[in-house]
Design a protein around this nucleic acid. Structure first.
Length: 292
DNA sequence: CGACTCTCCTGGGTGC
DNA sequence: TGCACCCAGGAGAGTC
């Protein structure tokens, strides 16, 4: 599942392979891919034609390509962007225009230079694209998304203060993109394992030392995963695999039910939480209240 | 503002 | 072999 490190890898690939180029034609192959765009497939395609991708940016799991002014002139102050969320299985693939169209391509962009095209591919169709106004630094529809831990705007003190006010489990808080962005189920479990915190610990009950440990773990796991995933493109192929890429072999908790904890060798346990799985070490991450 | 629930979607895997 | 079912989720909308 693409979380911050995978999305950042895609962003860097888009920066390298499509920024500076002018869209010749955008074609929506599955209407669901632009379901959140009020203009619908025809409006989306019309808005993209003839536009130049100026920059590739990201916040949390969202990425966007800033567009030059529409041919009709400046739309709104701050311009527009092509905003993308990869969902669970979204990929941005760049390649020779003549290659076969895979069945999961949801949108295709060709370029005025006749070079490699861009294909938004998404098996499970949870991802989406939309053409949106930029409101200051970020696209308007994601103004409510909090800064992610790897961007300068991230304020550890403000995050800690808000976290401690939450009356909910610490993992639920980590997954709340309006509190801290970029973290999904995989890196939440990995960060909690590193910080030796159980996912069900009440956020408001954490000590300041535990919050610091957690933030450091979040930062480290994202940075290390990014380092591993960031080496995965060296050709005309921008890739996010639905798995967590090269970092998958480095996972210490996620998906490792029954396998020994890397610190204490106790078998990793799997629990159901928020309609998904949570993995933790029964010894290193004691359940709140003392029960195992 | 925050906590909660519901919904969207596909394909791989499993059990009968 | 075929079918019903479960599971993997992220995030927005709606309610309280």
């Amino acid at each position: 599942m693409p979380e911050l490190p995978e999305v950042e890898t895609v962003r860097a690939g888009l920066e390298r392979f499509v920024v500076g180029r002018v869209v010749a034609e955008a074609r929506v192959l599955h209407p669901r891919a632009v379901r959140r765009d009020p203009a619908g497939p025809p409006g989306f395609a019309a808005a993209m034609a003839g536009r130049r991708f100026q920059r590739a940016e990201r916040r949390g799991k969202y990425l966007w390509l800033a567009l030059d002014d529409a041919p009709a002139g400046p739309g709104q102050q701050g311009g527009q962007a092509l905003l993308a969320h990869l969902g669970m299985s979204g990929q941005m693939l760049v390649g020779e225009p003549g290659r076969p169209l895979s069945p999961h391509v949801r949108a295709r962009f060709t370029f005025a230079d006749g070079g490699p095209d861009l294909r938004f591919t998404d098996q499970r169709t949870f991802g989406h694209l939309m053409c949106v106004p930029l409101a200051g630094a970020v696209p308007a529809p994601i103004a409510h998304i909090a800064p992610d831990p790897l961007e300068p705007a991230f304020d550890p003190g403000a995050f800690a203060a808000r976290l401690l006010r939450r009356r909910t489990e610490v993992k639920r808080a980590l997954l709340d993109q309006s509190l801290i962005s970029g973290i999904g189920n995989i890196y939440a479990d990995e960060a909690l394992w590193r910080a030796r915190l159980h996912w069900a610990r009440p956020a408001g009950g954490l000590t300041s030392g535990e919050v610091s440990r957690l933030l450091e773990a979040v930062h480290d796991v994202l940075t290390e995963a990014l380092k591993a995933g960031g080496t995965s493109f060296d050709s005309l192929y921008v890739n996010v695999n639905g798995e967590s890429g090269y970092f998958e072999r480095s996972l210490r908790a996620y998906g490792r039910a029954g396998q020994p904890c890397g610190r204490c060798a106790t078998p990793i346990r799997r629990d159901a939480f928020m309609n998904r799985s949570s993995y933790s070490c029964p010894r290193c991450q004691p359940r709140p209240g003392g029960a195992h």
